[in-house]
Amino acid sequence: MPSNEDWWLDEEAGPVVRPYQLTQGRTRASGEAFDMVATVIATQARIADPGGLGPEHFSVLHLAQIPTTVVDIASDVELPLGVVRILLADLREFGLVTIEAPIPMKAHQVDRDTLREVLHGLRGL
């Protein structure tokens, strides 16, 4: 007999594991904060004991083999942004990824050539 927490679950309900179970209940990433469009790059380091890492860590690490932004990873693994941040911070602690701050792109920081490139690119879409 299913418990009353199970009966309404179907494929529409999404993953049955609650997001923060993947992070042992942590809601905040360790270490220095990083932007959602920061670039994540796998270091190719090997670690002796990956015991502290779960399958989701490896999914994230796999995506970072090519420099990828935090939001793109979150979107690809279909986990909430906050969960992915925690997984990435773990990987960083293990030395498996580096996370590089984005090039500043606020209106008063971005160079005009970049903006013209954007205009050109948009017109060509």
Binding site: V37, T39, I41, A42, Q44, Q65, I66, P67, T69, T98, E100, P102, I103, M105, V110, T114, V118
Partner: peptide
């Protein structure tokens, strides 16, 4: 570009948020 060895050159996207 990336190096064929798989050792990826550090490379930041220019990521524009709208």
């Amino acid at each position: 570009g990336y190096e064929a060895s798989g050792a990826v050159a550090a490379r930041r996207h220019r990521a524009i948020k709208i």
